[in-house]
Design a protein around this nucleic acid. Structure first.
Length: 490
RNA sequence: CGGGGUUUAGCGCAGUUGGUAGCGCGCUACGUUCGGGACGUAGAGGUCGCAAGUUCGAAUCUUGUAACCCCGACCA
């Protein structure tokens, strides 16, 4: 019983921290605020990358890579953008170390000061738009639809594994368009890609929406987002897509000649998701026994555990398992056969539950005799014994069912904690209970700010879909076009 | 950057009135086990965060300092 987690009911954030570490996803590092993503955690991230990358390619995007370092002067070109990121930038000032005169270790060589200091990218709009300036001359050069997979650094005060780290991995798409309409369409298109991915691969229901001015990306005209709800009733922004207008084109003087031979400023978007998705994944589905992974993202969908008393029995089981794994493979099912003899079956059961493997097959001498195998599904913890014959089809259907079931469970939970609230008094009571509150708001930053100060709740988004009935702001009584989503957030 | 806490073996912790360090887990070897987190036996493993000071003697007392964690303000 060495690996028990703190129960969620006792301390949700402790449960999260325990789980990340004990399921071997990630751990802290020697560098404050930075994490080591361990092989099992990274395998999940790789699956996320793989699927998203495929979706980006399908929507016409290509990958490229831009530098980690950004000249300090670039960052200051777009006023809102600087404002948003200046407070959390790591800065490179020197390019050389030398042996400490007193002989102890190394020190920064004061003679190696950089002419212009370099910022470690907190995001890449500036370096990319300074580059696009050279790529774009004519409407024939547009659109540019680039994505990059990269790391970025934002010097955060308080960090948590995956949810907020000083360095994190992400993808950032940066596109350039000839018209406003096309850029807006692109931003919305990518929002839909993210929503599709979240729901169909991560099994996390999300609300598509628009950010209020307060929550908007620094430098954007409009920020679209997908908002997810965690099990503890707090919301988490899972992805964003920005319509940047011509702000960066202005800042970096990126123009093109249109068909009428006139100079025009280029229209831009950017969009990204990060390793924060790992946090969303963990907090959406898992339970007190460990991780629950959607089959579509599990590093291996099935684990097979042999139960044997001696070498002879193991040899027989190995032979049967070889047939089973071949059949699984033919169905495109990923698996791990754990016949390591230094752990007992009970330990393996608990360990793979902790790691969230969707399906476990256990097979022993008794099963061999009966032509059966024990099937365990992680999401409901149901166990049954079925015939080995046709097991690959059984497992395939089971995996599909698990994928569907955990999405439904998350959706049902969200529905159960989403409600309309019409008065501010009621709001103050309800927000303490967590969940999503749909309320009327007068659309002003002042009102949002007041609510945030008094209740710690923010507008997560103005939903794009759903009820659009107008009403009156719960705080000021002024007219409101539609209900917006309030919640406390990560 | 405020408020609180921690720092002793890989991890989690104990260490009394100051006397030179221990427990659990893990680890190594061998054996018995193996259908829900096995057990026995024998081992390995520590500049007690760092630096001064008090003392015959400091994990323990004093001062300074650093790192980390939690709670707030800021953020994906």
């Amino acid at each position: 019983m060495a690996k028990e987690l703190t129960p969620r009911s006792e301390n949700y954030s402790q449960w999260y921290n325990d789980l990340v570490v004990k399921a071997d996803l990630a751990e802290g590092s020697a560098v404050r605020g930075c994490m080591v993503i361990k092989p099992y955690g990274y395998a999940i991230w790789e699956k996320i990358q793989h699927e998203l990358d495929r979706m980006f390619k399908e929507t016409g995007h290509v990958n490229a890579y831009f530098p980690l370092f950004i000249p300090k002067s670039f960052l200051s070109k777009e006023a809102d953008h600087v404002e948003g990121f200046a407070k959390e930038c790591a800065v490179v000032t020197h390019y050389r170390l030398k042996t400490n005169p007193d002989g102890s270790g190394v020190v920064v060589d004061p003679d190696a000061k950089l002419e212009e200091e370099l910022i470690v990218r907190p995001t890449s709009e500036t370096i990319i738009w300074s580059t696009y300036k050279n790529w774009i001359h004519s409407y024939r050069d547009l659109p540019i639809l680039c994505n990059q997979w990269a790391n970025v650094v934002r010097w955060e005060m308080r960090t948590r594994l995956f949810l907020r780290t000083a360095e994190f991995l992400w993808q950032e798409g940066h596109t350039a368009h000839a018209t406003r309409e096309e850029a807006e369409k692109e931003a919305k298109k990518m929002l839909n890609v993210y929503a599709d991915f979240a729901e169909n691969f991560m099994a996390i229901p999300v609300i598509k929406g628009v950010k209020s001015a307060n929550e908007r990306f620094a430098g954007a005209l409009e920020t679209y987002c997908i908002e997810a709800l965690m099990q503890d009733g707090k919301a988490l922004q899972a992805g964003t897509s920005h319509f940047l207008g011509q702000n960066f084109a202005k800042a970096f003087d990126v123009t093109f000649l249109n068909k009428e031979n006139k100079q025009e400023l280029v229209w831009a978007t950017s969009w990204g998701v990060s390793t924060r998705l790992m946090g969303a994944l963990i907090m959406s589905h898992s339970d007190d026994d460990g991780l629950i992974l959607p089959p579509n993202l599990a590093p291996y969908q099935v684990v097979i555990v042999p139960i044997y008393k001696n070498e002879e029995q193991l040899a027989t089981i190995d032979a049967t398992v070889a047939e089973i794994t071949q059949a699984l493979k033919a169905q495109g099912i990923t698996f791990k056969y754990d016949n390591a003899d230094n752990k007992r079956p009970g330990f393996k059961f608990a360990d793979y539950e902790l790691k969230g493997v969707p399906v476990r097959l256990a097979i022993g001498a008794r099963d061999i005799e009966n032509g059966t195998i024990e099937v365990f599904r992680r999401d409901t913890k149901e166990k049954e014994t079925v015939s080995i014959n046709g097991i690959e089809n059984y497992v395939k259907e089971l995996l599909a069912d698990i994928q569907k079931n955990i999405f439904k469970k998350a959706l049902d939970y969200r529905k159960s904690v989403t409600r309309n609230v019409d008065t501010y008094d009621e709001f103050k009571v309800e927000i303490e209970k967590g969940g999503l509150l749909l309320c009327h708001w007068d659309g002003t930053p002042e009102t949002e700010e007041k609510i945030k100060e008094e209740t710690k709740a923010t507008i997560r988004c103005i939903p794009l879909e759903g009820d659009k009935t107008p009403g009156f702001c719960m705080v000021t009584g002024k007219p409101s076009k539609q209900r917006v989503v309030f919640a406390r957030a990560y």
